[in-house]
């Protein structure tokens, strides 16, 4: 548990989009997928996932449909819309640029100034 980090505010939406982009998922599936792709390093508050999913549906980035889960239960599946794919691309680029910039800044040594 100690190795897990709280996710930064605002990044939950990005993580959800990424998780869903790898294939349609139901809510619990999204949680598992995020844990899986982050190597278990990120801690998501479980309940908070759902307002975020509803928000992304309202914004037209995800679409939801009812289907049957792997254990034969009725479940609501989320998949990416084309707008969602575009947004994911933008957000990922932005995040990478930011991360690179911060990494560069943090790696600066005194003699480089």
């Amino acid at each position: 548990m100690t190795s897990q980090a709280q996710i930064l505010p605002g990044t939950l939406d990005l993580l959800i989009l990424k998780a869903v982009s790898l294939g349609p998922l139901h809510g619990y599936g999204v949680l598992l997928r995020i844990e899986q792709i982050s190597g278990g390093a990120l801690l998501v508050e479980q309940g908070a996932l759902y307002p975020a999913l509803f928000r992304l549906v309202r914004q037209g980035l995800l679409k939801a449909s009812w289907g049957t889960s792997e254990n034969n239960r009725r479940a609501k599946f989320y998949e990416l819309t084309s707008a969602g794919r575009k947004r994911l691309q933008q957000e990922a680029d932005g995040w990478n640029r930011l991360a690179a910039a911060i990494a560069t800044a943090l790696n600066t040594r005194p003699e480089e100034v």
């Binding site: 809510g27 619990y28 479980q46 759902y50 009812w66």
Partner: peptide, 13 residues
């Protein structure tokens, strides 16, 4: 439906 979705999550967990 919303209630069902949240309950399914807890049950899966």
């Amino acid at each position: 439906e919303m209630e069902e979705e949240l309950r399914a999550h807890v049950r899966n967990r």
